[in-house]
Write a protein that binds this DNA or RNA. Structure first.
Length: 1169
RNA sequence: GCCCAGGUGGUGGAAUAGGUAUACACGCAGCACUUAAAAUGCUGUGGCCACAAGCCAUGCGGGUUCGAUUCCCGCCCUGGGCACCA
């Protein structure tokens, strides 16, 4: 039988069935072997079927998985379906078929196609995100986020696709268009569920550092998160009179003092360049800024401003962010702001080039050092102040600063002297100094820079009559060694253009150091060689731009910052702002919260119920005081009052044994309150009250919504500390206190389960409570260390109040976990409504429901989750796909996690991979998964392009169908060709002709194995090559360099003329991961009863991969002149001796002196003559 | 504009702790087998020169080095991502 017959007889299908039957690819839970979790990004089963891009990654992981099984690993290699999402739904609407039916069909097609390629998936673990048994847990995870306060409802302007009629996440918008359908998105105010991914921004960023991902994917995520450091600065707002002279810098008076015209409010800006504060000459606020509303009465041109705001609102995002567009804006007349650093009054503008959603929605404009402000200031004729000068430090040998010489600082001018008639400029050639410059010189004490420019011009050129003089550009600094003076020079220089009137010239010309001549303007650029003069010439030719380079500057016009480098000035200014209480260090991110709801049908229902009644119900707060305290002391009465004003019901009981605390007594007195508390309610414990709160929850076993432990007395103190307690309060009952505090251990596990949100707040200067008593907290406790709060014994505690107010219920009640999954109802019509609600809103008997808490009338949330929800945790479910108690058993997770290798397309770099990491981190914080980061190693396969090098697309008709390829060449050849095309990560064009090379190779192997004679022995050379190949193929697979592994096997087969059985068997095993069907067949033909995949990967013999003879290269002056076949490990002396005897080498060495000989063992000899 | 990746024969690509550039494969040419073609096998295949020797070639221009595809500096081009993010 030929290889072609094998393919024709469906030999591949035969083995696929056999593998499925024997369950050879099954991964064992808790196997004794080392584990490997090899994961593909599970596909979205589209109607178009499998694309050639899919099998690329799948083949890579398949080879990898099969290799590690042969190496004795328990490999988890699963596959599933990411099946919710818009395409199926849109297709359903078009064809009138249920999305569920379409999805089932698509999955069937995908599965058939994937199976036809012989991948070694453990199909027992197949999952489907649209299966209620799966999305039950997607919903459950959402509820955990909700309970943690990481999911919230907000009506915000979001990206909306008018065609898909749904809101989109930032990540789903590409070039202002919907990622799915290409329609231009608009901004629309919509009620949304948002996920607080920004709370994890820092961890999502820092977590990247330790991951084995390509730097480019990490860079994409870092860019997307977009962290920047800077400062927030407050500018006081004052009423301004147009007639009044602008305020200068009120020397001697406090810069922060503002007069009677102060309007009692400030504009806060965010800047990454606090160093440039002295250059801030105006402010800009975004059209959405809330200040407009507050200042309405003060703004004199409010009509004009409101008109501008309306216009900005009507623009699409694409229009607003179009870079080509002219900047627009309106000044807020009647108000001004005060630059806090120098007291200068500056105008406030409104413009849509400032985004409401970033930073504070307002900026200080520093036009000289920001391109956008530069453009705006020039357009509206606003003042521009330079505060950073470019600094040129000489680097050439001659000009380099000499540390042993004195540095003379002075003001200088650079003069562009323009010819009276020609377009040429007078330039100087400094001969032995290697300088070629314009006219230049120092400014004397008694003259202005302009006067100096004219004087220098006259001295150095002799010309006398000036037609005009004009400054070019700003101030620049220059630091170099002046050889002709023997000193270092630091120059602050300005540049002037001096146009001559006529040729009148004196003959008293200074030519001591230089010769002058006219250079035509087209040649000036190449003539001049001083970088600072080149800089000015560039400005003269091309106009001035904003100077934004932070690294090559030095501060000027900035009082206490002068002469600092900007990087130093940023720190100094930030400290100044903090000291003067008008600003502070701040960090900002480009990352926005995740718009999580979709107004569509085909997604997981969000398992929340809205209950008006519960919203009206007062939330209860129980405040438990500490040792020797009372409900009427400390900040408790204040807190009670504040909370009651905000609609809470507050209990502040006083314990009868406050001073000699007894646990039993406290529990007895607190339990009645506890009975009133529920999953929405809040307990605050202070000091020993925290300890009591924990014991109360433990004793009653009741679930509680939020627990706040403030200055909490928990953990064990040392005997010395207790002694101090006794000495400090001799009359008090410290013994009882100690018995209460640490007499009996707290059941932390139980309390952690019962309290949904757990917060501990300590102060770093608390005299009683030391943070080390809190260091063994279990997972899931939110620990905050505040500064300067002592033991929290004050009459008002606004910071704590703020935290409690944030727990206020919204009326949204989670569907009880035992009622999950909340299944997606079957509907006849699933067209999007476009009203901001999903089609589910029309299923009245589904929407109307009973409140799980009060049993009253309530309605369900009708928005559904985005497609990304199901894929944000699926790798966890593969580990325990049938579990109906938890999404996955923690012990199993501990065994299989993390994913060792994750392979998929780079298009998911910021969507799936960011969301997935976020969910995994949240689950980690809640103690449900063992690692913070799910994917240790990430590999992005490159795109497979069409034969013409363009992207494959249906419209171009250049799509390669995997089915056709398998039919024509077999699965083995198709898989191997995809791997042979080039490095996995690279984009590479498909070449249908190329696959024949693989077919020829497989056929060669087939014939070799079928025809070898049993008594054959192989040559020593072939033996060496076999062992080398085993080594290389193994290493290449581990590094996912499949193309070179295949090439190595080809080399081996090309050299194999006579082979032995042992040779054939070893070779088949190393080929098996690549071509599983054919090798299994041949293995069987060789008489083996068991599968080849039950074998072990052959060991290579280190002693057998050493060649006996090597080729030594002889170079002369780096050029190859001879190659000698020599025994391996030949000594340096012998090799050199033999090299010198070579005819060609002799020819070159004849009569020459060998200055140096370089010997690299087993590689080369290099003679230098 | 900013960030990332890359640029090697006719084509896909090998080779970088600096050490024989072009492995392997496609394609092409020639030969063998055949009445012929296909298939298969063998041989050749960067350019100049064409026997050898030599010279020139890894986007372009410089630099470091005995020696650079590999390291450094400056450009050009292609692909991907971000983009009025202060």
């Amino acid at each position: 039988m030929t290889y072609k017959d094998f393919l024709k007889d469906n030999g591949e299908g035969k083995w696929q069935d056999q593998w499925e039957k024997s369950q050879i690819n099954r991964a064992e839970d808790f196997g004794s072997k080392p584990k490997k979790y090899v994961l593909d990004m599970f596909p979205y089963p589209s109607a178009a079927g499998l694309h050639v891009g899919h099998p690329e990654g799948y083949t890579a992981t398949d080879i990898y998985s099969r290799y590690f099984r042969l190496k004795g690993f328990n490999v988890l290699h699963p596959m599933g379906w990411d099946a919710f999402g818009l395409p199926a739904e849109n297709y359903a609407i078009k064809t009138g078929t249920q999305p569920k039916v379409i999805t089932e069909q698509n999955i069937k097609t995908f599965k058939r196609q994937i199976m036809s390629l012989g991948f070694s998936y453990d199909w027992n673990r197949e999952i489907n995100t649209t299966d209620p048994n799966y999305y039950k847990w997607t919903q459950w995870i959402f509820l955990q986020l909700f309970k943690k306060g990481l999911a919230y409802e907000a009506t915000v302007p979001i990206n909306f696709c008018p065609s898909c009629k749904t809101g989109l996440a930032n990540e789903e918008v590409k070039d202002g268009k919907c990622d799915r359908c290409g329609t231009e998105v608009i901004k629309k105010d919509m009620r949304q569920w948002m996920l607080r991914i920004t709370a994890y921004a820092d961890r999502l960023l820092s977590g990247l550092d330790n991951l084995d991902w390509t730097e480019s994917i990490k860079a994409l995520q870092r860019n997307w998160i977009g962290r920047s450091e800077g400062a927030e600065v407050d500018f006081a707002v004052i009423a301004s009179e147009p007639s009044r002279a602008k305020r200068g810098n009120p020397a001697g008076s406090s810069r922060l003092s503002v007069g009677s015209d102060f309007l009692g409010m400030t504009i806060r800006v965010y800047t990454t360049r606090p160093d440039t504060l002295f250059g801030a000459t105006y402010m800009v606020i975004s059209p959405e800024h809330k200040l407009i509303e507050e200042l309405k009465g003060k703004i004199k041109n409010i009509k004009e401003v409101e008109k501008y705001i309306a216009q900005a609102k009507n623009k699409t995002d694409l229009e607003r962010t179009d870079l080509a567009k002219d900047k627009t804006g309106v000044e807020l007349k009647g108000i001004s702001a005060i630059n806090p650093v120098n007291g200068t009054e500056i105008p406030v503008w409104i413009s849509d080039y400032v985004l409401a959603s970033y930073g504070t929605g307002a900026i200080m404009a520093v036009p000289y050092h920001d391109e956008r402000d530069w453009e705006f200031a020039n357009k509206f004729d606003l003042p521009i102040i330079q505060v950073v000068a470019p600094l040129f430090t000489a680097v050439t040998e001659k000009d380099k600063i000499k540390l042993d010489k004195e540095t003379i600082r002075r003001k200088m001018v650079c003069v562009l002297v323009k010819h009276w008639a020609d377009d040429s400029y007078y330039c100087l050639d400094w001969g032995k100094h290697d300088w070629k410059s314009f006219v230049m010189g120092g400014v004397e004490a008694n003259e202005t820079p302009e006067q100096a420019a004219v004087r220098e011009m006259t001295e150095e050129t002799g010309y006398q009559n000036v037609k005009s003089i004009k400054q070019i550009g700003g101030e620049i600094h220059n630091n170099h060694y002046a050889e002709h003076k023997g000193v270092n020079r630091y120059a602050d220089s300005l540049c002037f253009l001096v146009e001559l009137k006529n040729e009148k010239r004196s003959d008293k010309i200074d030519t001591e150091h230089h010769q002058g001549d006219w250079i035509s303007s087209s040649e000036v650029k190449s003539f001049i060689n001083l970088p600072n003069h080149k800089w000015y010439w560039d400005i003269f030719q091309n106009g001035e731009k904003a100077f934004v380079d932070i690294d090559s500057g030095v501060m000027i016009n900035s009082e206490f910052l002068n002469d600092l480098r900007p990087s130093e000035a940023i720190g100094k200014m930030t400290s100044w702002l903090e000291e003067n209480k008008c600003g502070h260090k701040a960090v900002n991110y480009k990352l926005r919260d995740w718009v999580f709801s979709r107004q569509r049908y085909w997604g997981e229902p969000i398992p929340l119920v809205y209950c008006e009644n519960c919203k009206k119900q007062k939330q209860k707060v129980l405040i438990i005081h500490g040792w020797e305290g009372s409900g009427d002391g400390n900040w408790f009465p204040w807190m009670k009052r504040e909370l009651e004003q905000n609609g809470f019901e507050v209990f502040t009981p006083t314990m009868t044994t406050s001073a000699s605390p007894k646990i039993e007594k406290w529990m007895e007195e607190l339990t009645p309150y506890m009975e009133k508390m529920g999953e929405n309610d809040i307990i605050i414990g202070h000091s020993l009250g925290s300890n009591a709160a924990l014991r109360l929850i433990e004793k009653t076993g009741k679930k509680i919504g939020h627990l706040f432990l403030v200055g909490s007395a928990i953990g064990k103190l040392s005997d010395e500390l207790w002694k101090l307690f006794e000495q400090g309060a001799p009359s008090s009952d410290v013994k009882s206190l100690r018995e209460f505090w640490e007499g009996r251990p707290i059941d932390w596990e139980k309390v952690t389960q019962l309290a949904i949100n757990k917060n501990i707040i300590l102060s770093d200067d608390d005299p009683y409570i030391h943070t080390d008593t809190h260091k063994d907290l279990p997972e899931g406790w939110n620990f905050e260390l505040w500064h300067g709060h002592k033991h929290f014994t004050v009459f008002e505690a606004p910071e704590i109040l703020k935290k409690v107010l944030a727990c206020k219920t919204t009326g949204w009640i989670p569907v009880p976990e035992n009622e999950l999954p909340l299944t997606l109802p079957e509907v006849d019509k699933y067209e999007p409504t476009g009203t901001g609600e999903s089609p589910l809103v029309n299923i009245t008997d589904w929407v109307k429901t009973k409140c799980p808490i009060c049993g009253g009338e309530a309605h369900r949330e009708t928005n559904t989750m985005p497609q990304w929800a199901g894929s944000s945790w699926y790798w966890l479910r593969f580990i325990d796909p049938q579990n109906d108690k938890v999404f996955a058993d923690l012990e199993k997770l501990k065994y299989f996690m993390p994913v060792d290798v994750y392979v998929g397309g780079a298009e998911h770099a910021v969507l799936h991979l960011l969301y997935g990491r976020f969910w995994n981190m949240v689950l980690y914080d809640l103690g449900y998964v063992p690692q913070e980061e799910p994917f240790t190693k990430l590999v992005n396969q490159g795109m497979i392009l069409a034969e013409n090098g363009e992207k494959m697309s249906k419209s171009q008709g250049n799509v390669i169908n995997p089915d056709d390829q398998v039919k024509e060449n077999g699965a083995d050849a198709f898989r191997m060709y995809e791997m042979f095309m080039g490095p996995l990560e690279d984009a590479k064009p498909w070449n249908t002709k190329g696959i024949i090379g693989i077919s020829r190779f497989l056929e060669k192997v087939w014939n070799l194995v079928n025809n070898f004679s049993n008594d054959g022995t192989i040559t020593p050379e072939l033996e060496i090559l076999l062992h080398k190949t085993i080594k290389k193929v193994g290493e290449d697979i581990e590094n996912m360099r499949f193309n070179t592994a295949i090439s190595a096997m080809m080399v081996l087969i090309n050299e194999s003329k006579v082979v032995s059985k042992e040779f054939v068997e070893k070779f088949l095993i190393i080929l098996a991961p690549f071509a599983p069907h054919m090798t299994e067949e041949l293995w069987n033909k060789l008489g083996h009863k068991e599968s080849i995949f039950k074998e072990a990967w052959p060991k290579y013999d280190e002693s057998k991969i050493k060649d006996e003879e090597i080729e030594l290269v002889i170079q002369i002056n780096g050029k190859v002149r001879a190659k000698l076949k020599l025994p391996v490990d030949i000594s340096e002396a012998d090799a050199i001796k033999l090299a010198k005897e070579d005819d060609n080498v002799k020819k070159y060495l004849e009569g020459a002196e060998i200055k140096k000989t370089i010997f690299v063992a087993n590689k080369l000899i290099s003679f230098v003559i």
